[in-house]
Nucleic acid binder design. Sequence first.
DNA 1: TCCTATCTGTGAATTATTTCACAGATAGGA
DNA 2: TCCTATCTGTGAAATAATTCACAGATAGGA
Lengths: 230, 230
Amino acid sequence: MGKNIPVPAIERLSKIYTVVSGLKKSDKKRISSAELESLTGIQAHSIRKDLSLLSPVKSGKEGYSTDSLEELVSATFGFNRKRRICVAGLDMLGMAILNNPDSALSGFEIAAGFDNSINRMEMITTKVPLYHFYEIEETVRRLEIEFAILAVDAEGAQKTADRLLAGGIRGILNFSPVILEPKLNLLVRNIYLLEELRLLSALLAQDPVPLTRGQTGAASPDKGNSEQYK
Amino acid sequence: MGKNIPVPAIERLSKIYTVVSGLKKSDKKRISSAELESLTGIQAHSIRKDLSLLSPVKSGKEGYSTDSLEELVSATFGFNRKRRICVAGLDMLGMAILNNPDSALSGFEIAAGFDNSINRMEMITTKVPLYHFYEIEETVRRLEIEFAILAVDAEGAQKTADRLLAGGIRGILNFSPVILEPKLNLLVRNIYLLEELRLLSALLAQDPVPLTRGQTGAASPDKGNSEQYK
DNA sequence: TCCTATCTGTGAATTATTTCACAGATAGGA
DNA sequence: TCCTATCTGTGAAATAATTCACAGATAGGA
Ligand SMILES: NC(=O)c1ccc[n+]([C@@H]2O[C@H](COP(=O)([O-])OP(=O)(O)OC[C@H]3O[C@@H](n4cnc5c(N)ncnc54)[C@H](O)[C@@H]3O)[C@@H](O)[C@H]2O)c1
Ligand SMILES: NC(=O)c1ccc[n+]([C@@H]2O[C@H](COP(=O)([O-])OP(=O)(O)OC[C@H]3O[C@@H](n4cnc5c(N)ncnc54)[C@H](O)[C@@H]3O)[C@@H](O)[C@H]2O)c1
């Protein structure tokens, strides 16, 4: 179980999990690697290989059991346990995320929102409890919040990340256009809108356009070489 | 020039470009691969290797010239040409993006917004011209819009993508939680919030937590095997 | 001008990931 | 029960990406 699964495989397996758990609502009891390929775009080859890195799923002539497949990935990666998250920065982007219907984040619970503008917070109506920037550390610790969605402006990003980490946060989804200092014990995935657009440009400039290759997950595990952790 | 650069290298080079062009405002004229490493988290090794895939930059004992480095990447990937983009779906997320200051998207111009709710559009004040869903195809073609940011709800995602493509769009940044059908001549990068959170969970479940490895870019080039393009 | 310290550029070696191909397992029918 | 068609599971092979290590280039000082 604790075997080391390559990051690209983790990304694919998460996507497979998403698709399979979406499928479960329908009556589908079994699914083959070929069907999964057409739903996810991941090659059947890779799907079987990836699953073989986990403990065995219940399979047979008619493919995998959707139940046991979901259960297996879920257990391996801890998707069954509900995790508390928070949103830092409550301007338009942060509010859009805060107002997401719960169902859109199934498995996660938005337990707090943070901003440094009292005015702004007073104008907001939401059922998520809101706190000031100064209360980040204490609140994250008290509510045992594990992940943060960072949607503050560029100037505030690093110091907000520092506070979150001081409170014991384990991972950050960083929407701000800032490269956060790498820290030991902190996972960062960056969602850089401008970078994504540039990437589209760059891929378009390739010849041939590389449609046929590539990962499956999403943003970027933050790179860091062991020397520079602070 | 038209040599084929691996996708992970493209992702790194785009990030390097972002950092270097941010730097240029300051007086820095030259930068070494080691300095770039500490700014980007990408190892100096890789930076030099990646740059060696492009035509030569002006370098010397004191590292790369920031000007020629920026110029080189920019020319290779077409970052110098301004591209028109659009936003489809103007609820909270779409509006957050529409209201982004221009500077935040330098190199891109938001030339249109689309929604299928007339009511919603009448309430919006913005300098970006807005159009109805029905006008997508014609407008994309007329304004020569190259990329779209897709922020419609799940039900509308595929049909909106189809309209955009019919208008000749080249790439989509997909924020909706839907796996779009792969199409030839269409680049898709997905930004799946829930997936990202799951990935954080999954990475945390690894032992050791894989901080030291990983790409640099951001979201996911959509996988597709050549058979299934429609 | 020559020497030296610094930093790049890049083949070669290493490591990681994907793809292949086929043996084995299963379900369903004869 | 046995046979067959289907689909998984997984080592081995192929491919891709990263890291290494060092030759060569440059700037600045003696
Ligand atoms: N809000 C978030 O935090 C968040 C984060 C990540 C992703 N997303 C996804 O982004 C999308 C947008 O989310 P949202 O929070 O802005 O709210 P939403 O999903 O309610 O917004 C949908 C908007 O798209 C419009 N729309 C629907 N069908 C359309 C069509 N065919 N053509 C044009 N417009 C159409 C609707 O009128 C509405 O304005 C959703 O798919 C959501 O799942 C949201
Ligand atoms: N709007 C977009 O389309 C978009 C897309 C991708 C990324 N981003 C990035 O996401 C971030 C949020 O963007 P936005 O459009 O919501 O507007 P914004 O950048 O104006 O919002 C910043 C919010 O963070 C708050 N803030 C600032 N410093 C803080 C601190 N130290 N602690 C807590 N809160 C703090 C501010 O009060 C404000 O509410 C920005 O970094 C932006 O670049 C925006």
